[in-house]
């Protein structure tokens, strides 16, 4: 089985978010970039599946040259090879269109993504890709198995979970609980250096959306502390002042 894992390169989860150029650009200075945590899950699960029943795992990133150290980490986790579409990702539509081209030409059986990128929280690419490829979509999967012709998965739904299956080829997005993310070992890191990382140009043109500026969420006006001895007051405040119940 040939699996393609989409990897987005995002700021570490503890990053303090700031902006430059009149709040129009995300400030990358001093920020550590990582594999999007959900993509770490889909990559790990792809490796588990191919190690058990054969196949290859390729990773793909739409990103500029500065994403390569993070792509090498994905190779160090065990991916066979990598593709970097050389472009600055504009929006989900743009990214999905580039990946769709590669997914088709590479004749993959299964494309995995994360539930969302933790930078722009789009949750878009998986659905866009599925539709562009005309493949079934299983979104937010917490369990995933695949054989030569079908995938079986469990996914989150509002208020619960559901188990479902579909024929390959398909697109599946990873949700937490899918597996424990694999940590690259020394051997993996050494081997990653010589694994193929193919850089291809972006071919698809989409510029439907652009982020023009950012703001920080409104700050809280300050916390009102209530003496623990009079904790009951909290309920009176929530009832009479905030009118919440």
């Amino acid at each position: 089985m040939k699996i393609l894992v989409c990897v987005s390169v995002v700021p570490d989860t503890t990053t303090k978010i700031t902006f430059t150029d009149n709040d129009s650009q995300f400030n990358k200075a001093g920020v550590q970039f990582i594999i999007n945590p959900y993509d770490e899950l889909s990559l790990t699960r792809a490796l588990e599946i191919t190690e058990a029943s054969g196949g290859t795992v390729s990773v793909i990133t739409v990103g500029e040259a500065d994403t390569e150290p993070v792509i090498r980490k994905a190779l160090a986790m065990g991916a066979t090879d990598a593709i970097r579409v050389d472009a600055s990702p504009k929006d989900g539509m743009y990214v999905a269109a580039q990946i769709a081209v590669q997914a088709k030409s590479g004749e993959y059986d299964l494309v995995l993504t994360g539930r969302e990128s933790i930078d722009y929280n789009g949750g878009q690419v998986q659905g866009l890709l599925a539709e562009m490829l005309n493949w079934p979509l299983i979104n937010v999967a917490t369990e995933l198995d695949a054989d030569a012709s079908t995938v079986k998965a469990t996914r989150d739904i509002d208020g619960g979970r559901e188990t479902l299956s579909c024929a390959l080829p398909a697109v599946v997005s990873a949700q937490k609980d899918l597996c424990e993310p694999r940590i690259p070992n020394m051997r993996g890191i050494m081997m990653a250096r010589s694994k193929p990382l193919n850089v291809v140009p972006a071919t698809e043109k989409y510029d439907y959306t652009s982020i023009t500026s950012y703001e920080l969420p409104p700050a809280k006006s300050g916390v009102k502390m209530i003496d623990a001895a009079k904790a009951e007051e909290l309920m009176d405040l929530l009832h009479s002042t905030e009118k919440l119940f």
């Binding site: 700021p11 978010i17 929280n121 439907y208 652009s210 982020i211 023009t212 950012y214 703001e215 969420p217």
Partner: peptide, 20 residues
């Protein structure tokens, strides 16, 4: 046509301009 969306896991709000 501009709309506000959550970014960076609720740490910021982005103003998205739709040109379509």
């Amino acid at each position: 046509f501009t709309v506000k969306k959550t970014c960076f896991s609720s740490k910021a709000i982005g103003h998205v301009s739709i040109n379509h």
